[in-house]
């Protein structure tokens, strides 16, 4: 009897220990699997986001090409015809010359606008000469009598992946646009610096600022800021908003990983 009790106790104990070990092992395994699944989901989400951004860039490129090749060509041909018409009218109906000249100047303006829009849609300078040149051009274009945009940059900037170049450029474009359009800034500084652990892009302005929480709460507003976060999500970047209503804003973009996991194909011009 006593032997049976001893054996029974031993068997029960072994079973109990086996159950404990099994539960601990199985639960840890499940948790690991859950983490892997989460990682996959995150990767998939990033991939989807990257594909959306890529599609957006494709669409911009297509529109720019259509504008340049079709509308631009048509406008140039129209201008040629108008010039011919102008020469004819000059001899037969001198009174209409003013009208022709007015139409020609309107046409010139339209051609210039189409070129500008086409160039804005596809940052050719970025693709040909890199981020620093593109930002210089952006600063130059944005500067006018009322707004002064300045670029401050490290002497030695590493060559970045086209995807990173494009993301940083688009973000700078969005932030400058916001500063001019919404914050009424007069002075904007684009600060691009290479750090030992990545790239830091800051856009500092002296505008009237904004309430970040209020903007992010409202789903209809803050689309640009959300877009910035989405773009950074793809390249594992981070944005810090040092903003407040009534004072200038400081927005810092940091990209630590210069070789992001999800790659977005950027077409060369």
């Amino acid at each position: 009897m006593k032997l049976y009790i001893a054996v029974g106790t031993a068997v029960l104990l072994v079973m109990a220990i086996f159950i404990i070990v099994f539960v601990a092992y199985y639960q840890q395994k499940q948790i690991r699997q859950q983490l892997i699944l989460k990682e996959w989901q995150e990767k998939y989400r990033k991939g989807l986001l990257a594909a959306t951004l890529q599609a957006q860039e494709h669409e911009r490129r297509r529109i720019a090409q259509d504008l340049h090749d079709e509308i631009g060509t048509m406008l140039s041909v129209t201008k040629l015809s108008l010039n011919q018409l102008g020469r004819t009218v000059e001899h037969n109906d001198p009174g209409s010359t003013v009208l022709v000249q007015k139409t020609r100047s309107l046409l010139d303006e339209t051609i210039a606008n189409v070129r500008r829009i086409s160039r804005d849609l596809v940052p050719t300078t970025l693709e040909r000469f890199g981020l620093v040149s593109a930002l210089e051009e952006l600063a130059e274009k944005a500067s006018n009598g009322e707004v002064h945009v300045e670029l401050s940059c490290s002497d030695k900037m590493p060559t970045l992946l086209p995807q990173l170049d494009l993301t940083l450029f688009r973000i700078a474009q969005e932030l400058i646009n916001n500063a001019i359009k919404h914050a009424n800034a007069e002075n904007i500084i684009i600060d691009l610096h290479c750090q030992p652990n990545g790239i830091l892009l800051s856009v500092i302005d002296d505008g009237r600022g904004f309430d970040l929480d209020e903007i992010l709460k409202d789903k209809k507003r803050g689309l640009g800021l959300r877009n910035i976060e989405s773009r950074l999500n793809v390249i594992d970047g981070h944005v810090t908003f040092d903003v407040e209503e009534g004072r200038g804003s400081r927005i810092h973009i940091q990209v630590k990983n210069l070789k992001p996991e999800v790659e977005v194909e950027v077409e060369a011009v």
Partner: peptide, 17 residues
């Protein structure tokens, strides 16, 4: 579970143990 498994039979057969 270890405590209960280790002492279960001791108490179930308390007269013998």
């Amino acid at each position: 579970i270890v405590h209960a498994a280790g002492t279960l039979f001791v108490f179930l057969f308390v007269k013998a143990t």
